[in-house]
């Protein structure tokens, strides 16, 4: 018997540390890829409409929505569903050792 699936994941609190580090940097310098057409480029190259009712950042290649940000009085909503991933330049630690393998 394999272990129950719920043993293989953590709850969202596990994201807190990594996200705090990510959002402490200038995300516009990050490289993203559009879900819709695959175009890759810096967030700063997106076409941003708004700011009201919200900021809508669209792909310069296909005009589809890559990122949305709505700022309410006590919350912000960030929608990244149009983004394959963001590559965010960060200083070490985490420098690859070149082996392609995880920690021993």
């Amino acid at each position: 018997m394999t272990e129950p699936a719920q043993d293989s994941y953590q709850d969202g609190n596990a994201l807190a540390g990594p996200l705090r580090e990510i959002f402490a940097v200038d995300v516009t310098a990050a490289a993203g890829q559009c879900v819709h057409c695959g175009l890759a480029g810096p967030v700063a190259s997106l076409r941003v409409y708004g700011p009201a009712p919200g900021m809508v950042a669209r792909c310069p290649g296909c005009d589809e929505v890559v990122l949305r940000l709505v700022r309410g009085p006590d919350s912000a909503w960030l929608d990244l569903r149009g983004t394959v991933s963001l590559r965010i330049p960060l200083p070490g630690p985490g420098v690859p050792d070149g082996t392609g393998e995880g920690p021993a």
Partner: peptide, 16 residues
């Protein structure tokens, strides 16, 4: 789906 109210009645100020 980005934070705004599902119904949006201005007289009940349903913004978010």
């Amino acid at each position: 789906t980005a934070g705004y109210h599902n119904y949006g009645d201005p007289w009940r100020e349903q913004r978010y």
